[in-house]
Design a binder for these strands. Sequence first.
RNA 1: GCUGGAGUGGUGGAAUGGUAUACACGUUCGACUCAAAAUCGAAUGCCGCAAGGCUUGAGGGUUCGAGUCCCUCCUCCAGCACCA
Length: 791
Amino acid sequence: MHKRFDHKEFEGKWQKEWKETGLYDAGTRDQNKDKEYVLVELPYPSGNLHIGHWYAFAVPDIYVRFRRMQGKQVVYPMGFDAFGLPAENAAIKRSINPREWTESNIEYMRTQLESMGNAFSWDKTTSTIDPAYYKWTQWMFGEFFKNDIAYRGEGVVNWCPHDHTVIANEQVLADGTCERCGTAIEKREMPQWKLRITNYADKLIDGLDGLDWPEHIKEAQRQWIGRSKGAEIDFKITTPQNTNVNISIKVFTTRPDTLFGVTYLVLAPEHSLVAELQTQIKNWDDVAAYVQAAKQKDDIERGDNTKEKTGVKLEGITAINPANGEEIPVYIADYVLGGYGTGAIMAVPAHDERDAAFADKFNLPVVSVITETAVLKNSAEFDGMSSEEAKIAITQKVGGQMTNTYRLRDWSIGRQRYWGVPIPIVYDPEGKAHVIPKEHLPWTLPEDVDFTPTGEPPLAKSVELKERTERIFGAGWTPELETMDTFVDSAWYFMRYMDNQNAETFASLESQKEWLPVDMYFGGAEHTTMHLLYSRFWQKALHTLGLVVHDEPYLRRANHGMILGPDGNKMSKSKGNVVDPDEQVKLVGADTVKMYLAFMGPYENSSYPWDPGGVTGLRRFLERVNGLDSHITDSKPTETTSLLHKTIKKVSDDIAEFKFNTAISAMMILMNHVEKSGLTHDSYLTFLRLLAPFAPHLTEELWHQAGNKTSIHSADFPISNPELAKDDSVTIGIQINGKMRGTITISPTASESDAMSAVASTPELAERISGAEIKKIIYVPGRILNIISGI
RNA sequence: GCUGGAGUGGUGGAAUGGUAUACACGUUCGACUCAAAAUCGAAUGCCGCAAGGCUUGAGGGUUCGAGUCCCUCCUCCAGCACCA
């Protein structure tokens, strides 16, 4: 009969003990140890911990504890990303203050997080809504503004009509809807605060090479940035009134080698030249109608590449192909995008599918200039040149520029909402923007505000903000009314953790040198082209200003998947398939929930459905661990010793690769064995230390029951002895002519002739080869014996 | 369409080119019990009474030997996409 296993009894007890002794605090840097900074994405304090938080924080905790026990000075901080719309919406709905709502959520969520029993370094916590934190967010923005990394520019923005605010390109989903609320995004023309992430496009791509990140994440960022190499080429244009107007159209092309095949140009409908040429365009009414129609279309319609091409010829406008002097027509068409490249293309219908479709519809000539072997033809002096060489040669000849163009757009960070960091800008009576000096930071969020969204920023309603601005800066000065995108808040939080009390600077250079960069960053796949890209940019921007030591924030990264409902669907209240972690913890304990999540499959990339039966399996395992001390004996079978050391190696290797599932499986195999064969007291303690990162509460309890006075989590992780891990004998497969026919058990170092005689003394194998001529024997000691008999 | 990844039992999944299906769930049978739960023991890829044969999305190939490497194709997931 197993002894009592009551997780409620000891989990709370040990959590209290760990908290009181500050066991997991990172403290000051200990130069005798290697540091290891393990980071998880800081949560939004919604007020309720869900199973995804468990997956995101409790499973990496296995790695954290493992590295601690290996003697690293591990820091595993936790904090709160607490600005954002949910608080504001809750405030509107229940007429409460967003700050009060958020702070009480933080308080509650912290107790929930503590109930997970993770080795969080709570001494290094921070919260993005703390004025002592957002003071520095504002200060950094100011530095960026002074150095022209932040700017206010006119432009077309993504407007979410549901949330009444602008959102960044990264926050628009592929189907053109809002990442937050799913509403279809509208385009609006308005001035916007932006950050020049595009200036860092090359650095962001090139920096990926030095990072130990999974290739698919790097590739996703490369594609998001979307660098293409090509050339910008000017086409002079002529008009009826003035055959030699000094106007030209700049096009971007990745194929300057096909310049002799250009038979027309196409401008985006929104191209500025269209309006400029109004008086010269004979069919202006048709053109204007087309431009108007294009404006009405949303991105989804315009992005539909299956529909037939449309467009209008600009009658009276002619361009000159700089390669051969030929006059070619100019069109506008919505398949050319205003925001990419120069908003104008040279069309080569012979070598581009879209141009071909357009040429087909409008009966435009097609001139083939590239042979099947990628060599030029119909291209005057360039005939016979390779396509690659010609790209440079032709660009040079026509006075073009080799250049890169990017898919990435500047990051728009202004939000017409209340619950965020106020953009630290004031306008003088002439309307010129000025950064608020450091001595007036934090530039606090006013309290006298009505949050009801109207399309106008809520800060416009604050009398206090207006008065504050005039009092400090003078009469006629006005405050900026927008707040920042919350992705700004989370772009640099990992630095603040490591110097969270500093009132002089956001994080001293000493603290950066001591603790940064982040060694291991666990997080969700959804942040690949948002948070992860933004925060790399932020770091590089600070780096160019000399404010940070490192120019890449995160050395290693692993993306985890999602925990789905038992029905295999994403958990949602409407589907009624939500698993409540608090309930599960009550039922089976934190150790069981954590181990179940780790056991479902490899941690990286995959999503798994919650299986209530699977939880039972891990609970059973831990109950058996709880009773394992009844199997302690004095005898010491070598078989058990060997299995123990193999298991230590397997568990260590697997944790390092985040293959927690197979690590657990190895421990299960070991336990299945020792329950039958017994184990020594020493082996028992070794087993507990092996399991400690996975089941921190139970192992701590059993460790103390076994007479230890200090925490198991301060003990050393077991080290595998390769000598002791060796087996005396091993069962290997016997193949005859490549077919598996049986097994023999033999020493792993046995000779080929020993192996053959073992086969001869195994009747069913001997029978199969008797009388046959053996042509060849392949013997891999400890693995396989393959007998080729030629029959 | 492009890029990256994945297709293995009833389920989650395991396998440095070397005994495919570890471990766990589930199911079946048995023990314990008045009974049930819990627990313990046994069985469990498929076809077949058996001998035996077949099996890692499909088809080829390389190899003594392929889930693993190569080629062609199919399906699914993720990212990008009228990006010039």
